[in-house]
Nucleic acid binder design. Structure first.
Length: 293
DNA sequence: CCGCGGGCCTGAGAGC
DNA sequence: TGCTCTCAGGCCCGCG
């Protein structure tokens, strides 16, 4: 489900419920998600005050007073919801509309504030892990992640350099979290469209043979910034699973220009092309063959 | 080292 | 209806 804008939306929703509050009780309702929970997972959380909630790429990171960090990844279908005592639901008794959905409430954090934070993940591609903050640089899950696309490090020169030696297509390069960390299938399709660049183009064409940054790279970085910022403002994209922690939907899906719009007219002024879809590295690519070159 | 395809899971929707 | 098939926002792993 979630790419950077969805994870950032979730972070902003969880922040008021988590920051400064203590985890009174952590409830783990099955032995694994994508991989087994650590044996000391619950013990390292219970009694800890959350001092901050950050994000790196598609990971949420809760800093604990103990010096540990709780890493959380939403996989494809993970979501969090915050339930407060005073909204009529007892903690942990908040209900999805259907019991079948409630069966996927796998983890619950009961906070000292009275809020219950429920992690739901039908497909269980998500995962959580507690690590020591001082060992964060050795954490295999985070090792090798590229720059944040909305951070200062990420610019056209950097992107062109990172792509210069790649043998893949441009789309695959942008999906590679080592090149830039946080994009996924939707926002890569949308950014390439906005930059008028073909997903079939070779990644290496963002630089000249002499290694100079091209205008293509500059356009692309601009497009990535724009689409991510707009999507965050819209609370992310809700196609199937993504919800805000309040249960509300994001609404950026209404602003998609190519993703999930196969057969529709291209929205580029004067283009007149038709949005097409094809499969690249096993994933759907949506694009306009007429104006993306 | 790199790039690719398979696999991990469940559920929704299409087509018969 | 109900069955079967395909597809889905991610990422790790093993292979060549």
């Amino acid at each position: 489900m979630p790419e950077l804008p969805e994870v950032e939306t979730v972070r902003r929703g969880l922040q008021p419920a988590m920051e400064g509050a203590r985890i009174k009780k952590a409830e783990v309702r099955r032995k694994d998600l994508r991989f087994p929970f650590q044996k000391d997972f619950v013990a390292r959380l219970e009694g800890q005050t959350v001092t901050g909630l950050g994000r790196r790429a598609k990971y949420l990171m809760a800093d604990l007073a103990s010096g540990d960090v709780l890493l959380m990844h939403l996989g494809m279908s993970g979501s969090f919801r915050v339930v407060n005592d005073d909204n009529g639901h007892a903690p942990g008794q908040f209900h999805h509309p259907r019991a079948a959905d409630r069966a996927h409430d796998h983890v619950v954090f009961y906070m000292s504030s009275g809020a219950a934070i429920i992690f739901n993940d039908p497909r269980r591609f998500g995962y959580m892990k507690v690590i020591a903050r001082k060992a964060i640089d050795d954490e295999p899950l985070l090792e090798g992640l590229g720059p944040e696309p909305l951070g200062n490090e990420f610019d056209a020169d950097m992107l062109a350099r990172a792509c210069a030696n790649k043998k893949t297509g441009l789309k695959a390069a942008l999906l590679d979290q080592r090149v830039v960390a946080g994009l996924g299938n939707i926002y890569v399709c949308e950014a390439l469209f906005r930059a008028h660049l073909s997903p079939r183009r070779l990644a290496a064409t963002l630089a000249t043979r002499k290694g100079e940054t091209t205008d293509h790279a500059r356009r692309l970085v601009e497009a990535i910034h724009a689409v991510l910022n707009q999507a965050i403002k819209a609370g992310g994209s809700s196609l199937r699973d993504h919800r805000r922690t309040s249960g509300e939907l994001g609404y950026f899906q209404h602003s998609f220009q190519v993703y999930d719009r196969e057969g529709e007219k291209c929205q580029t002024k004067g283009c007149g092309g038709i949005v097409r879809r094809f499969s690249q590295n096993g994933r759907s690519t949506f694009w306009c063959p007429k104006c993306q070159k």
